[in-house]
Amino acid sequence: MVEIFQILLSESFWAASLRIATPLIFGVLGALICEKSGVLNLGIEGIFVAGAMSGWMAVWLGAGLWGGVLVAALAGGFFGLIHAILTVPLGLSQHVSGLGVTLFATSVSYFSYRTALPNVSSPPRIEPFRPLEIPILSDLPFIGAVLSQQTALTWLALFMVGLVWYVMNRTGLGVAIKAVGDNPNSVDAQGLSVYGLRIGAIVAGSALMALGGAFLTMSAFDAFFFGMVNGRGWICIALVIFASWKPGKALLGALLFGAFDALQVRMQTEVGAKVPSQVFLAAPYILSILALVIAARRAEYPRALLTPWFKGQR
């Protein structure tokens, strides 16, 4: 027990938690926007891969770090648009379309990577984002040390939490997106475009998801590996239910998850001899399922989630 307290009181533990949480924050926010508009986006896992690959590739080709972020967001938006066309005007199964987008985005990314770099055993590295020192914040005791280890992308993720909260709760656009996910007929009666709102929400949400992938190759690591996303997208889909579609709770859920993951890595070195390492490796996935089971019953799903809407048909 003493060891746990020592871990919980260390700055490096909280810095790691925030770092692990960052891609999840992007992913959960993106999934939240899509689902609030009434469309489940299971393309998330593939969009993470596409963001990770395209962002990294753009930097490697010389676009600069922020150029890479932009490319990743555009790639995410592109795959989101495919999902949007299939599920909104065509009204196809959101489950199958999402999985199709995941398989498509993943294979496009892997194929492009292998075509650009046919015979490399160790992937080329880029110069990733450096930790950002913010003058006054960095001087704070404890918190300053945690925050000064974070890169600009983590700050962007935190800013996005606020932005998404503001748009969803304080603007007409947010009201319209929520309405289209609850009762599209009422939105249509107001003379607003159901298709336009949903497609826009999916494209924007997907662009955010792709930034989660870009964080992996441009901040957490400095290269692209096959299988590096490793289920993070699916974890986000579980977390968004746990967060009951609220940006603040999404941040909290991602941070809790990050803290738990950082803790298990440190526990592994403490008690690694007694417990097989696989117990720790499986922990994040088991935790996600538990979070889902706990939250599912009292979850208030957007009422029109998974229900396609056609113009002129009531």
Binding site: H95, W234, A282, Y285, I289, R297
Partner: peptide, 23 residues
Amino acid sequence: RYGADEVVTTLLLNFIIIIFLQY
């Protein structure tokens, strides 16, 4: 029993089972 979406649980179980396989 709990209304937990089977898409997410089956997807996550894939990862758990492959880790179990490695063990």
